[in-house]
Design a protein around this nucleic acid. Structure first.
Lengths: 144, 144
DNA sequence: TCTTGACCTTGAGCGCGCTCGAAGCGCTAG
DNA sequence: CTAGCGCTTCGAGCGCGCTCAAGGTCAAGA
């Protein structure tokens, strides 16, 4: 009764486009998706679950490259469980760091907004108000 | 005594590259940067403050396009204060929403990690664990 | 005097993550 | 029978935010 899912079905359920699903497969995030005799992809419930996890990683800011590594480990089976866990824990730290960073920016925004409300004194358009600047330096791209 | 700053000085102080500073000017985020007789840019402390605010907006996920709008309003002087405030408040909401979203993904990650610790039962690699899926649908690009 | 280096402009290039166009096949409803 | 739709592949294209290369000017130090 597991009426194997078409790419369109999966697109609907995961809120990804069929384009993106095919793209994810191309770049190595999804492997071994079954095919019907017609050549059409047939996804299992497990595939959908895995795609859900991928979406969680992606939407929380993990780059495709790292997701690919994670997918590769998964291919390696239970022997790679510790590595996968480590990867997830690293990512968890990134997410926490990002949250904290956002909190700091929020504080800046709040003070700016307060200034515009005329409830607080602040310099004309944003001197002094900036976050550390020398603090968190380089990189990363987030998404959603 | 306000020894006007060169682009290199500002790059150092803002942790942006000189390329980025020139790019920001090109796309309309910074206007009317003074020039020395040599044609070299000379930034004021106020410029540095404004760039700090821009960096805050950018790093908290505001796209360049919206920043451009904000810069345009600023050009409009005090008459646009209310609009600028509204823009900042909208952005504040975005940041809050993003934080909450990250919190949800964090919960997923935590349960996955717990599973890998063998402390919790979870399906083989991520069925069922996904966030709402039909919830927050489209868009946005974040950064840092 | 010569060299170095920070600056200038213009325009091209890049990495990322999709997104789409073209051409074609196959199932199903009318 | 045929129209239409959803699927297939392959490769190109796009939006974003930088980033860099080329070629030139200028000013200070060895």
């Amino acid at each position: 009764m597991t009426h194997e899912l078409s790419i369109g079905d999966v697109a609907e359920r995961t809120a990804l486009s069929v384009h993106t699903l095919r793209y994810y497969e191309r770049v190595g995030l999804l492997d071994g998706v079954d095919r019907a005799s017609s050549g059409h992809r047939r996804y299992t419930e497990d595939d959908v679950g895995w795609i859900g996890l991928l979406t969680c990683l992606r939407s929380s800011g993990m780059p495709i490259r790292a997701m690919r590594d994670f997918a590769a480990l998964r291919r390696g089976g239970s022997a790679t469980a510790a590595e996968r866990r480590a990867l997830l824990e690293d990512h968890r730290q990134e997410v926490l760091a990002r949250q904290e960073e956002l909190a700091r920016y929020l504080a800046v925004l709040d003070s700016k907004i307060a200034y515009y409300r005329g409830e607080e004194a602040a310099p004309p358009d944003g001197a002094r108000t900036a976050v550390g600047a020398g603090s968190a330096a380089r990189s990363r791209g987030e998404r959603r």
